[in-house]
Protein backbone atom coordinates (compact mmCIF):
# COMPACT_ATOMS: atom_id res chain seq x y z
CA UNK A 1 0.00 0.00 0.00
CA UNK A 2 1.07 3.56 -0.57
CA UNK A 3 1.58 5.69 2.48
CA UNK A 4 -1.53 7.55 3.60
CA UNK A 5 -2.83 9.63 6.44
CA UNK A 6 -5.53 8.37 8.70
CA UNK A 7 -8.20 10.52 10.30
CA UNK A 8 -11.06 9.40 12.45
CA UNK A 9 -14.23 11.37 11.89
CA UNK A 10 -16.46 12.10 14.85
CA UNK A 11 -19.32 13.82 13.06
CA UNK A 12 -20.94 13.49 9.64
CA UNK A 13 -20.40 17.06 8.53
CA UNK A 14 -16.78 16.87 9.61
CA UNK A 15 -16.33 13.72 7.55
CA UNK A 16 -18.01 15.32 4.54
CA UNK A 17 -15.79 18.36 4.75
CA UNK A 18 -12.62 16.32 5.09
CA UNK A 19 -13.50 14.22 2.06
CA UNK A 20 -13.82 17.24 -0.20
CA UNK A 21 -10.02 17.22 -0.48
CA UNK A 22 -8.96 15.25 -3.55
CA UNK A 23 -7.35 11.94 -2.66
CA UNK A 24 -9.40 11.54 0.46
CA UNK A 25 -11.54 8.45 0.81
CA UNK A 26 -13.92 7.13 3.40
CA UNK A 27 -12.95 3.99 5.25
CA UNK A 28 -15.67 1.83 6.76
CA UNK A 29 -15.31 -1.96 6.95
CA UNK A 30 -12.32 -1.76 4.64
CA UNK A 31 -13.01 -5.06 2.94
CA UNK A 32 -12.97 -3.50 -0.52
CA UNK A 33 -10.80 -0.45 0.06
CA UNK A 34 -7.89 -2.06 1.91
CA UNK A 35 -7.92 -4.96 -0.55
CA UNK A 36 -7.75 -2.60 -3.53
CA UNK A 37 -5.11 -0.45 -1.87
CA UNK A 38 -2.96 -3.58 -1.56
CA UNK A 39 -3.52 -4.29 -5.26
CA UNK A 40 -2.41 -0.75 -6.08
CA UNK A 41 -5.80 0.08 -7.55
CA UNK A 42 -6.67 2.59 -4.83
CA UNK A 43 -3.97 5.02 -3.75
CA UNK A 44 -5.62 7.20 -1.13
CA UNK A 45 -3.88 10.27 0.23
CA UNK A 46 -6.00 10.27 3.36
CA UNK A 47 -8.43 7.78 4.77
CA UNK A 48 -11.25 9.15 6.84
CA UNK A 49 -12.45 6.42 9.14
CA UNK A 50 -16.20 6.86 9.49
CA UNK A 51 -16.90 3.71 11.49
CA UNK A 52 -17.20 5.63 14.76
CA UNK A 53 -19.73 8.16 13.53
CA UNK A 54 -22.70 8.02 15.88
CA UNK A 55 -26.25 6.97 15.06
CA UNK A 56 -25.57 5.32 11.70
CA UNK A 57 -25.87 1.67 12.61
CA UNK A 58 -29.46 1.30 13.69
CA UNK A 59 -31.86 -1.06 11.96
CA UNK A 60 -35.46 0.15 12.26
CA UNK A 61 -38.36 -1.76 10.83
CA UNK A 62 -41.86 -0.29 10.91
CA UNK A 63 -45.07 -0.30 8.86
CA UNK A 64 -43.54 1.86 6.15
CA UNK A 65 -40.37 -0.09 5.67
CA UNK A 66 -36.94 -0.94 6.91
CA UNK A 67 -34.35 1.71 7.51
CA UNK A 68 -30.88 0.26 7.73
CA UNK A 69 -28.09 2.48 8.98
CA UNK A 70 -25.14 2.64 6.64
CA UNK A 71 -22.72 1.51 9.34
CA UNK A 72 -24.70 -1.56 10.35
CA UNK A 73 -22.63 -4.60 9.51
CA UNK A 74 -23.81 -7.16 7.00
CA UNK A 75 -23.93 -9.91 9.60
CA UNK A 76 -25.98 -7.87 12.01
CA UNK A 77 -28.61 -6.97 9.41
CA UNK A 78 -28.67 -10.51 8.06
CA UNK A 79 -29.87 -11.94 11.37
CA UNK A 80 -32.18 -9.08 12.34
CA UNK A 81 -35.47 -10.79 13.13
CA UNK A 82 -37.70 -8.18 11.47
CA UNK A 83 -35.56 -8.02 8.35
CA UNK A 84 -35.52 -11.80 8.09
CA UNK A 85 -39.31 -11.94 8.44
CA UNK A 86 -40.36 -9.03 6.24
CA UNK A 87 -37.46 -8.80 3.78
CA UNK A 88 -36.12 -12.33 3.42
CA UNK A 89 -34.36 -11.55 0.14
CA UNK A 90 -32.26 -8.95 1.96
CA UNK A 91 -31.27 -11.35 4.72
CA UNK A 92 -30.54 -14.17 2.29
CA UNK A 93 -28.47 -11.98 -0.02
CA UNK A 94 -26.36 -10.93 2.94
CA UNK A 95 -25.87 -14.45 4.26
CA UNK A 96 -24.88 -15.80 0.86
CA UNK A 97 -22.21 -13.12 0.43
CA UNK A 98 -18.53 -13.45 1.32
CA UNK A 99 -17.71 -15.19 4.60
CA UNK A 100 -18.80 -14.77 8.20
CA UNK A 101 -15.65 -12.77 8.96
CA UNK A 102 -16.10 -10.40 6.04
CA UNK A 103 -19.79 -9.93 6.89
CA UNK A 104 -18.77 -8.92 10.41
CA UNK A 105 -16.53 -6.22 8.96
CA UNK A 106 -18.36 -4.91 5.94
CA UNK A 107 -21.03 -2.28 6.41
CA UNK A 108 -24.25 -1.84 4.46
CA UNK A 109 -23.11 1.49 3.03
CA UNK A 110 -19.74 0.07 2.08
CA UNK A 111 -21.33 -3.00 0.58
CA UNK A 112 -23.19 -0.83 -1.93
CA UNK A 113 -19.85 0.66 -2.95
CA UNK A 114 -18.20 -2.71 -3.49
CA UNK A 115 -16.15 -2.69 -6.68
CA UNK A 116 -15.72 -5.12 -9.51
CA UNK A 117 -13.63 -8.31 -9.34
CA UNK A 118 -12.44 -7.87 -12.95
CA UNK A 119 -8.99 -9.49 -12.95
CA UNK A 120 -7.60 -6.82 -15.27
CA UNK A 121 -8.96 -3.98 -13.14
CA UNK A 122 -7.34 -5.53 -10.06
CA UNK A 123 -3.90 -5.84 -11.63
CA UNK A 124 -2.58 -2.37 -12.53
CA UNK A 125 1.00 -3.61 -12.77
CA UNK A 126 0.10 -6.23 -15.34
CA UNK A 127 -2.59 -4.29 -17.16
CA UNK A 128 -1.97 -0.54 -17.20
CA UNK A 129 -4.89 -0.11 -19.60
CA UNK A 130 -8.21 0.00 -17.77
CA UNK A 131 -10.96 2.46 -18.52
CA UNK A 132 -12.38 1.99 -15.07
CA UNK A 133 -9.11 2.97 -13.44
CA UNK A 134 -8.21 5.54 -16.02
CA UNK A 135 -10.86 6.53 -18.57
CA UNK A 136 -9.52 6.44 -22.09
CA UNK A 137 -6.64 4.08 -21.33
CA UNK A 138 -8.32 1.06 -22.88
CA UNK A 139 -9.86 -2.19 -21.76
CA UNK A 140 -7.91 -5.39 -21.32
CA UNK A 141 -10.99 -7.55 -20.84
CA UNK A 142 -12.73 -7.09 -24.16
CA UNK A 143 -12.26 -10.08 -26.45
CA UNK A 144 -10.20 -12.00 -23.93
CA UNK A 145 -10.67 -14.29 -20.99
CA UNK A 146 -14.04 -13.12 -19.79
CA UNK A 147 -15.86 -15.95 -18.03
CA UNK A 148 -16.74 -13.63 -15.17
CA UNK A 149 -17.58 -10.49 -17.06
CA UNK A 150 -20.94 -8.85 -17.62
CA UNK A 151 -23.45 -9.59 -20.37
CA UNK A 152 -25.80 -6.73 -19.52
CA UNK A 153 -25.24 -3.01 -19.15
CA UNK A 154 -21.88 -3.15 -20.85
CA UNK A 155 -20.30 -0.55 -23.08
CA UNK A 156 -17.49 -0.60 -25.57
CA UNK A 157 -15.35 0.86 -22.78
CA UNK A 158 -15.99 -1.60 -19.96
CA UNK A 159 -17.60 -4.97 -19.31
CA UNK A 160 -16.66 -5.26 -15.65
CA UNK A 161 -19.20 -7.02 -13.49
CA UNK A 162 -20.87 -5.61 -10.41
CA UNK A 163 -20.21 -8.44 -7.96
CA UNK A 164 -22.50 -7.64 -5.05
CA UNK A 165 -25.52 -9.50 -3.71
CA UNK A 166 -27.29 -7.13 -1.33
CA UNK A 167 -27.81 -4.43 -3.94
CA UNK A 168 -29.56 -6.94 -6.18
CA UNK A 169 -32.12 -7.59 -3.46
CA UNK A 170 -32.43 -3.87 -2.77
CA UNK A 171 -32.96 -3.22 -6.47
CA UNK A 172 -35.72 -5.78 -6.69
CA UNK A 173 -37.44 -4.33 -3.65
CA UNK A 174 -37.18 -0.71 -4.82
CA UNK A 175 -34.98 0.60 -2.04
CA UNK A 176 -33.81 4.16 -1.60
CA UNK A 177 -30.30 5.22 -0.68
CA UNK A 178 -30.14 8.07 1.81
CA UNK A 179 -27.10 10.27 1.82
CA UNK A 180 -25.92 13.35 3.64
CA UNK A 181 -27.67 15.47 1.05
CA UNK A 182 -30.50 13.53 -0.63
CA UNK A 183 -32.51 10.41 -1.21
CA UNK A 184 -31.65 8.41 -4.31
CA UNK A 185 -33.78 5.59 -5.69
CA UNK A 186 -31.47 2.64 -5.97
CA UNK A 187 -32.22 2.28 -9.67
CA UNK A 188 -30.56 5.67 -10.14
CA UNK A 189 -27.80 5.14 -7.58
CA UNK A 190 -25.69 2.85 -9.74
CA UNK A 191 -24.42 4.05 -13.09
CA UNK A 192 -23.72 1.87 -16.11
CA UNK A 193 -20.19 2.28 -17.44
CA UNK A 194 -20.95 4.06 -20.72
CA UNK A 195 -17.91 6.13 -21.56
CA UNK A 196 -17.07 6.81 -17.91
CA UNK A 197 -16.56 3.41 -16.29
CA UNK A 198 -14.75 5.10 -13.42
CA UNK A 199 -18.05 6.57 -12.23
CA UNK A 200 -19.95 3.73 -10.60
CA UNK A 201 -22.51 5.64 -8.53
CA UNK A 202 -24.01 9.11 -8.56
CA UNK A 203 -22.41 10.01 -5.23
CA UNK A 204 -20.63 13.34 -5.24
CA UNK A 205 -17.34 13.98 -3.50
CA UNK A 206 -17.92 14.23 0.23
CA UNK A 207 -21.39 12.73 0.02
CA UNK A 208 -21.86 9.89 2.49
CA UNK A 209 -24.44 7.14 2.42
CA UNK A 210 -26.24 7.32 5.74
CA UNK A 211 -28.93 4.69 5.37
CA UNK A 212 -30.81 2.42 3.05
CA UNK A 213 -34.58 2.44 3.13
CA UNK A 214 -36.52 -0.56 1.87
CA UNK A 215 -40.25 0.10 1.50
CA UNK A 216 -42.60 -2.45 2.98
CA UNK A 217 -44.64 -4.49 0.57
CA UNK A 218 -46.28 -7.85 0.32
CA UNK A 219 -43.78 -8.75 -2.38
CA UNK A 220 -40.88 -7.89 -0.08
CA UNK A 221 -42.31 -10.12 2.62
CA UNK A 222 -42.50 -12.99 0.15
CA UNK A 223 -39.09 -12.65 -1.43
CA UNK A 224 -35.97 -14.68 -1.92
CA UNK A 225 -32.43 -14.40 -3.16
CA UNK A 226 -31.06 -17.27 -5.21
CA UNK A 227 -27.34 -17.38 -5.89
CA UNK A 228 -25.64 -19.84 -8.22
CA UNK A 229 -21.89 -20.48 -8.28
CA UNK A 230 -19.46 -23.32 -8.83
CA UNK A 231 -18.23 -23.34 -5.26
CA UNK A 232 -20.81 -24.01 -2.58
CA UNK A 233 -19.81 -20.98 -0.56
CA UNK A 234 -17.46 -18.00 -0.32
CA UNK A 235 -17.70 -17.18 -3.99
CA UNK A 236 -19.21 -14.43 -6.09
CA UNK A 237 -22.30 -15.25 -8.13
CA UNK A 238 -22.11 -16.77 -11.57
CA UNK A 239 -25.68 -15.56 -11.67
CA UNK A 240 -28.18 -14.62 -9.00
CA UNK A 241 -31.71 -13.36 -8.76
CA UNK A 242 -33.76 -11.53 -6.16
CA UNK A 243 -37.47 -11.97 -6.54
CA UNK A 244 -40.45 -10.64 -4.57
CA UNK A 245 -43.94 -11.93 -5.30
CA UNK A 246 -47.45 -10.94 -4.30
CA UNK A 247 -50.42 -13.01 -5.40
CA UNK A 248 -54.08 -12.09 -5.74
CA UNK A 249 -56.53 -13.51 -3.25
CA UNK A 250 -57.00 -16.52 -5.52
CA UNK A 251 -53.50 -17.58 -4.57
CA UNK A 252 -52.59 -18.14 -8.23
CA UNK A 253 -52.60 -14.85 -10.07
CA UNK A 254 -49.61 -12.59 -9.87
CA UNK A 255 -50.50 -9.15 -8.55
CA UNK A 256 -47.02 -7.78 -8.03
CA UNK A 257 -43.62 -9.16 -8.89
CA UNK A 258 -40.11 -7.70 -8.54
CA UNK A 259 -37.12 -9.24 -10.23
CA UNK A 260 -33.48 -8.23 -10.23
CA UNK A 261 -30.36 -10.02 -11.39
CA UNK A 262 -26.84 -10.22 -10.05
CA UNK A 263 -23.64 -11.70 -11.36
CA UNK A 264 -24.48 -10.83 -14.94
CA UNK A 265 -24.49 -7.05 -15.29
CA UNK A 266 -22.34 -4.00 -14.75
CA UNK A 267 -24.83 -2.79 -12.15
CA UNK A 268 -27.56 -4.51 -10.12
CA UNK A 269 -30.03 -5.28 -12.87
CA UNK A 270 -33.76 -4.81 -12.58
CA UNK A 271 -35.64 -7.13 -14.97
CA UNK A 272 -38.76 -5.07 -15.56
CA UNK A 273 -39.55 -6.98 -18.74
CA UNK A 274 -39.92 -10.18 -16.73
CA UNK A 275 -42.11 -8.39 -14.22
CA UNK A 276 -44.34 -7.00 -16.97
CA UNK A 277 -44.62 -10.36 -18.65
CA UNK A 278 -45.84 -11.99 -15.46
CA UNK A 279 -48.02 -9.35 -13.83
CA UNK A 280 -51.63 -10.50 -13.99
CA UNK A 281 -50.64 -13.98 -15.17
CA UNK A 282 -51.28 -17.22 -13.39
CA UNK A 283 -48.35 -18.93 -11.71
CA UNK A 284 -47.05 -21.89 -13.60
CA UNK A 285 -43.67 -23.31 -14.42
CA UNK A 286 -44.01 -22.96 -18.18
CA UNK A 287 -45.27 -19.40 -17.93
CA UNK A 288 -42.48 -18.48 -15.56
CA UNK A 289 -39.77 -20.06 -17.67
CA UNK A 290 -41.02 -18.32 -20.81
CA UNK A 291 -41.30 -14.96 -19.09
CA UNK A 292 -37.83 -15.32 -17.60
CA UNK A 293 -36.30 -15.27 -21.06
CA UNK A 294 -36.97 -11.53 -21.01
CA UNK A 295 -34.39 -11.15 -18.23
CA UNK A 296 -31.58 -11.17 -20.74
CA UNK A 297 -33.05 -8.84 -23.36
CA UNK A 298 -30.18 -7.01 -24.97
CA UNK A 299 -27.55 -9.26 -23.47
CA UNK A 300 -24.26 -9.56 -25.24
CA UNK A 301 -21.60 -12.14 -24.48
CA UNK A 302 -17.84 -12.14 -24.90
CA UNK A 303 -15.55 -15.13 -25.29
CA UNK A 304 -16.39 -17.45 -22.40
CA UNK A 305 -19.26 -15.73 -20.58
CA UNK A 306 -22.05 -16.73 -22.94
CA UNK A 307 -23.22 -19.33 -20.42
CA UNK A 308 -24.49 -16.49 -18.24
CA UNK A 309 -27.28 -15.74 -20.71
CA UNK A 310 -28.93 -19.10 -20.31
CA UNK A 311 -28.01 -19.39 -16.65
CA UNK A 312 -29.53 -16.01 -15.80
CA UNK A 313 -32.90 -17.02 -17.29
CA UNK A 314 -32.92 -20.25 -15.33
CA UNK A 315 -31.92 -18.58 -12.07
CA UNK A 316 -34.69 -16.03 -12.47
CA UNK A 317 -37.22 -18.75 -13.24
CA UNK A 318 -36.22 -20.89 -10.30
CA UNK A 319 -36.26 -17.94 -7.92
CA UNK A 320 -39.78 -17.04 -9.04
CA UNK A 321 -40.85 -20.66 -8.70
CA UNK A 322 -39.39 -20.78 -5.22
CA UNK A 323 -41.34 -17.78 -3.93
CA UNK A 324 -44.37 -19.05 -5.86
CA UNK A 325 -44.23 -22.35 -4.05
CA UNK A 326 -43.50 -24.41 -7.17
CA UNK A 327 -41.14 -27.20 -6.16
Amino acid sequence: MNDFDYLRATALDEASTLAKTPGTMFLAGGTTLIDLAKCGVERPGTLVDITRLPDLSAVTVDEAGATIGALATMSRVAVDAAVTERYPAVSEALLLAASAQLRNMATIGGNLMQRTRCAYFRDPAGYPACNKRMPGSGCSALENVTRDHAILGTSDQCIALYPGDLSVALTALGATVRTTSREIPIARFFVEPGDRPDRETVLERGEIVTAVHVPASAAAANSTYLKVRDRQSYEFAAASAAVGLELEEDGRTIRDIRVALGGVATVPWRAEAVEAALRGRRLGETTIREASRAAVEGARSWYANGYKIELACRVVARAIMEVGGIK
Partner: peptide, 10 residues
Protein backbone atom coordinates in the same frame (compact mmCIF):
# COMPACT_ATOMS: atom_id res chain seq x y z
CA UNK B 1 -10.79 -16.18 -4.79
CA UNK B 2 -10.27 -16.72 -8.50
CA UNK B 3 -8.29 -19.95 -8.15
CA UNK B 4 -10.92 -21.76 -6.19
CA UNK B 5 -10.02 -24.53 -3.79
CA UNK B 6 -12.67 -26.50 -1.96
CA UNK B 7 -14.20 -24.86 1.11
CA UNK B 8 -15.63 -26.68 4.09
CA UNK B 9 -19.06 -26.36 2.47
CA UNK B 10 -17.93 -28.29 -0.60
Amino acid sequence: ADYRIATNAD
